[in-house]
């Protein structure tokens, strides 16, 4: 068996999602290689070589990998695919965009969002917004997998893998990135944060969202999140959305403020260790999953909470 993990990185370092993916890949057994492709990604490749269990890093550099477009990257992965029984990516916007393109060309199923490895061909994955867990067995020669990063520990350090440069593929010229607006934040990354403070429609406005939640998140060194309703209403940026179709989080502590607890939202946060809900409606469904529920007006309770945390 031989496993190829396609790294998500920013050139300088690996994204934390890649480390969780390597943690999952280690459970498959067999030799573990990492592919790092970018315009200039030597530092990220070096970082991949230092991850425990990795025995080889494939590094491909070309200007047309700078934007990590799926078309060119898929062609590169396919050129290497022959040597592997498993090709594994994180279930992030990067991995979800790329993995099916690879699987289709290999004429194999892709196994999305696995939360557990039962055997090299058998995996558990959530379906129906996490209301059911399916155990699936793949009969294909190559398994193309995306990993729910919150379900796996990050791989450790201490590897000393060699880095091999591989030839880049041609620029297919099918698409081009013409702009990127990334949300700047000094806060921890939402999907990997230990504490998440999320606001919903109950916040009432973008101004309230930041006036009330920023101080709380500051005190807790927390990432900020939001419900779909809050994002749709413009209270928070789109990449704050937690849920079935947003980010999946599993922090130590999740605070849901003014969020009703729709199944699509719960799908993204119900694996948090401790859930706190603040809501003025005592019958809000969020209280069915909350470890600690506080019924009342968030406009009074949130400032009190920030004050109490000192």
């Amino acid at each position: 068996m031989s496993v190829l993990v396609v790294a998500e990185h920013d050139g300088a370092s690996l994204k934390s999602a890649t480390l969780n993916t390597l943690g999952a890949a280690a459970r498959l057994g067999g030799e573990l290689h990492v592919l790092v492709a970018g315009a200039s990604c030597g530092a990220a490749a070096a970082a991949a070589g230092q991850v425990a269990g990795v025995s080889k890093v494939l590094q491909a550099e070309a200007a047309h990998y700078a934007d990590q477009g799926a078309e060119n990257l898929a062609a590169l992965v396919l050129a290497q695919a022959g040597a592997y029984t498993h090709i594994v990516l994180p279930a992030t916007s990067f991995g979800k965009n790329l993995a099916p393109r690879v699987a289709a060309r290999l004429d194999v199923a892709q196994i999305s969002d696995i939360v557990s490895v039962l055997a090299a061909d058998t995996f558990v994955r959530p379906i129906y917004a996490g209301n059911a867990l399916a155990t699936v067995k793949s009969g294909d020669a190559v398994k193309v997998i995306t990993v729910r990063t919150t379900a796996f520990e990050v791989a450790g350090q201490g590897g000393t893998a060699a880095i091999a440069a591989i030839a880049p593929g041609p620029d297919l010229g099918l698409s081009r990135c013409v702009g990127r607006e990334l949300t700047k934040s000094a806060r921890p990354e939402l999907a990997a944060a230990k504490i998440v403070v999320s606001g919903g429609r109950g916040m009432g406005s973008a101004e309230n969202y930041s006036r009330l939640l920023d101080p709380l998140a500051d005190k807790l060194n927390a990432a900020l999140g939001a419900s779909r309703a809050a994002v749709d209403a413009g209270y928070a940026p789109n990449d704050y959305q937690v849920g079935q179709t947003g980010k999946i989080v599993a922090p130590q502590l999740y605070l849901a403020i003014g969020i009703s607890g729709a199944i699509q939202h719960l799908a993204g946060m119900k694996d948090a260790k401790v859930i706190v809900a603040v809501n003025k409606d005592p019958d809000a469904p969020i209280f069915q999953v909350a470890d600690y529920g506080l019924v009342g007006d968030l406009f009074e309770l949130v400032p009190q909470l920030a004050a109490e945390l000192g």
């Binding site: 916007s93 607006e181 990334l182 940026p237 990449d239 980010k247």
Partner: peptide, 10 residues
């Protein structure tokens, strides 16, 4: 809509 924000492709 990508993980870090928004991206525009042609």
């Amino acid at each position: 809509e990508i993980d870090g924000g928004l991206e525009t492709l042609e």
